[in-house]
């Protein structure tokens, strides 16, 4: 297949993937702990669609069922799709910027910064809501951005930022944030449960509000990352080389990392720390569609969304009435993959 035909082929596969994702999303509306019949779900959904709503009667369906579908399952599915797409795209972009296949959205200390931000809000006992988000979520967002800001400035020499120093600084600050969280928990035992609960990450309290808060960060962020897809390809082959190929390397890195940080911070603030999506999805897709970011990024967006949606649906229905934290499910899927990747990597070295 010729060079361009191959990409066209991938884009048609992508279209199919989007359709599959939508079907998965619709499917997730039909399952849950509350027992709502298939036809009832259809009727509830149909009753909300303009045009045919008059044709559908929901008279003998319990009012709570409609609430469950429209106000719980639907926003949850949307939220999961958004967060999954954001984290996976950020992971793919960061792996290119850092030229490191182990890079993931938390690498700049974002997750730990968000955790610390949330912890501080929880301990201070802020219970205001900001833009429909809890104080903990807003504070988590600020914590994540503040952490990246610090990490970035540590790593900056003049106009240049070294990816290696960024990763090291991110790791160091992560450890420091974690240590501070631990200390706070020791001194504020009474708040410990809340802190742990926050860091576990979950979609159990979805709302349209959260989606409305997430979107203005997520969409522009993803747009900026996609905008730089070709530059990311070139940067992933080496920064100096990228410069000689006409890429404004430092500016691209700055824009992409800032977008990655904002997207991650918004995702983490609305749903806690959800590991692995940002690491394994880009890798899995690299094996399937290759490493060209112009193809990989859109696939990551769709794939991350689909993966997280499946994980979250499992989390909801696997052990009723309890909900398994979605982070546990992603890790259960993620860890074996990660290990397989390591083993495969080892073989190719030998």
């Amino acid at each position: 297949m010729s060079y361009l035909a191959k990409r066209k082929f991938y884009y048609s596969i992508l279209l199919i993937s989007v359709i599959v994702l939508l079907l998965l999303g619709i499917f997730s509306l039909f399952v849950g702990t509350a027992n709502i019949g298939f036809l009832d779900v259809c009727r509830i959904l149909a009753s909300k669609l303009p045009g045919i709503q008059k044709l559908v009667s929901t008279d003998n369906i319990r009012g709570s069922s409609a609430d469950i579908i429209i106000k719980l399952r639907l926003p949850r599915a949307v939220l999961v799709i958004l967060v999954g797409s954001g984290l996976a795209a950020v992971g793919a972009a960061m792996q290119s910027v850092f030229r490191n296949p182990m890079a993931e959205p938390g690498i700049l200390g974002l997750s730990s910064g968000a955790g610390l931000g949330a912890t501080i809000a929880i301990v201070i006992g802020l219970d205001k809501t900001v833009l429909g988000l809890s104080a903990a979520a807003a504070s988590a967002f600020i914590g994540a951005i503040a952490t990246v800001f610090i990490v970035y400035n540590i790593s900056r020499t003049g106009h240049r930022i070294s990816p290696t120093v960024l990763i090291l600084a991110g790791t160091a600050i992560s450890f420091m944030n974690s240590a501070v969280i631990q200390l706070i928990m020791i001194f504020r035992r009474d708040r410990m449960d809340y802190i742990i609960m926050w860091t576990m990450g979950s979609f159990s309290s979805p709302s349209w509000n959260k989606i409305a808060v997430l979107l203005p960060f997520l969409l522009p962020g993803l747009a900026v990352i996609l905008f730089h897809a070709r530059d990311l390809n070139i940067i992933s082959t080496g920064e100096e080389t990228a410069k000689t190929l006409g890429v404004e390397v430092e500016r691209t890195k700055k824009f992409v990392l800032a977008s990655c940080s904002i997207v991650t911070a918004a995702c983490v603030a609305t749903s806690g720390i959800i590991g692995f999506v940002g690491l394994i999805i880009p890798h899995l897709l690299r094996l399937l569609v290759g490493t060209d970011q112009r193809v990989l990024l859109p696939f990551s967006i769709v794939g991350g969304a689909a993966f997280l949606l499946v994980c979250d649906t499992l989390a909801r229905v696997a052990a009723p009435p309890a909900e398994i934290p979605v982070g546990a499910i992603t890790a259960v899927f993620g860890s074996p993959f990660f290990i397989a990747l390591l083993i495969k990597g080892k073989r190719s070295v030998m």
């Binding site: 030229r99 992933s236 082959t237 000689t244």
Partner: peptide, 13 residues
């Protein structure tokens, strides 16, 4: 155009 000294490319292009 530049041909650098060492080229190592991490990803599978």
């Amino acid at each position: 155009s530049v041909v650098p000294q060492n080229t190592y490319i991490e990803f599978d292009f």
